[in-house]
């Protein structure tokens, strides 16, 4: 028996473990630094109501980013998350306002519609072998159009569904701790993040998501039905977009059919800032959540500082590039 150089095998392992923790720490530290920086720059930034406004601004983008993370980890991409969210909101509107069904049914219909659309995208990708970029681009346009058709191009209001606006605007936490009226929308975001993190880290579905992104052919040759698992992941992402649809509809107390285009790019930006690799196989929900928070803090903070709107966009773009570059540098050094 030979003695293969064991020392050289051990060392990169330790470096990698450190790298992983280091990165999460970095993203989190950046978030904290932004918060501190803005607090120093403006006395109005760090106040409960503004923090809640930031969290609320994160909620929808955060949920969409979670959905996008799942698909991106498999090595795919989902461009339809924004318009799918709108589509699900419209479905909720049809079920609740036009058909007058009870609240719970509307929620279920929206999530179900999301999962179904995700499954359809997944079928395009897995069975028909259409590249994910194209399949979900098509889906994005289909859903944008369908939202306008189904709604009759008018916003659908939820005035007749008591309690609908409470899904996002109400505050269960606020009822227990009156000093901390965190809206339910934010609570739902964190619950979704917890669920998604569990699925990714602790279930077969999650493990196959990473495996697909890491080496799809190897997974297929291991006898795994890759098509089916891929479709399940797209369906799960779709269902999460459905929850996003409920959140935004509840927040606006209406389903706005023209909304949604452009949201997919912000979701993907949050995913990327959070350190998920666009080539798949690597990523965390915690990272995505921090990424979404960084974007919301940045936008809000620049506004509170009254930075001209033109420049806010420039800064956001610069931050995205810096964040991804930092990730590349880090990986280049450790990997």
């Amino acid at each position: 028996m030979t003695t293969v150089s064991e020392a050289s095998e051990k060392k990169p392992a330790r470096g990698l473990a450190e790298g992983g923790a280091y990165q999460k720490l970095l993203a989190f530290a950046s978030l904290i630094m932004l918060l501190i920086g803005f607090s120093i720059a403006s006395p109005n930034f760090m106040q409960t109501s503004n923090m809640i406004a930031i969290l609320q601004a994160t909620s929808v983008n955060g949920v969409l980013a979670i959905a996008a993370t799942l698909v991106i980890i498999t090595g795919g991409i989902d461009l339809s998350v924004g318009t799918l969210m709108t589509f699900c909101a419209v479905i909720a509107g049809v079920v609740l306002t036009y058909l007058g069904m009870p609240l719970l049914l509307g929620v279920i219909a929206a999530i179900g519609a999301g999962a179904l659309c995700g499954l359809i995208s997944g079928t395009f990708v897995a069975k028909m072998k259409i590249p994910p970029f194209i399949a979900t681009l098509g889906m994005m346009l289909i859903l944008k159009g369908l939202s306008l058709v189904i709604s009759g191009t008018r916003p659908i209001y939820f005035n007749d569904t008591p309690g609908f606006d409470l899904i996002s605007r109400g505050s269960l936490i606020g009822e227990v701790f009156p000093a901390l009226p965190i809206p339910n929308g934010v609570l739902i975001l964190f619950i979704m993040a917890g669920v998604a993190a569990y699925i990714l880290g602790r279930t077969v579905l999650g493990r196959y998501a990473f495996a697909l992104g890491s080496n799809e052919e190897a997974v297929r040759l291991s006898g795994v039905n890759t098509d089916m698992w891929k479709m399940r992941i797209y369906a799960l992402a779709g269902g999460i977009c459905g929850i996003g649809g409920i959140l935004i509809a509840s927040r606006l107390n209406s389903a706005q059919p023209a909304l949604g285009l452009g949201y997919e790019l912000e979701a993907i930006a949050a995913v990327v800032i959070g350190g998920t690799s666009l080539s798949g196989g690597r990523g965390t929900i915690l990272g995505t959540l921090i990424g979404a928070l960084i974007m919301a803090v940045l936008t809000n903070g620049l506004r509170v500082l009254s930075v001209a709107q033109e420049w806010q966009t420039v800064v956001t773009g610069v931050i995205i590039i810096l964040a991804v570059y930092a990730d590349m540098v880090r990986r280049g050094k450790t990997g």
Partner: peptide, 17 residues
């Protein structure tokens, strides 16, 4: 990462605001 990240953000703010 942190330093650059923050400096980038804040210097931009400082320049424009």
């Amino acid at each position: 990462f942190t330093r650059r990240f923050l400096m980038g953000a804040l210097s931009a703010v400082a320049l424009m605001g």
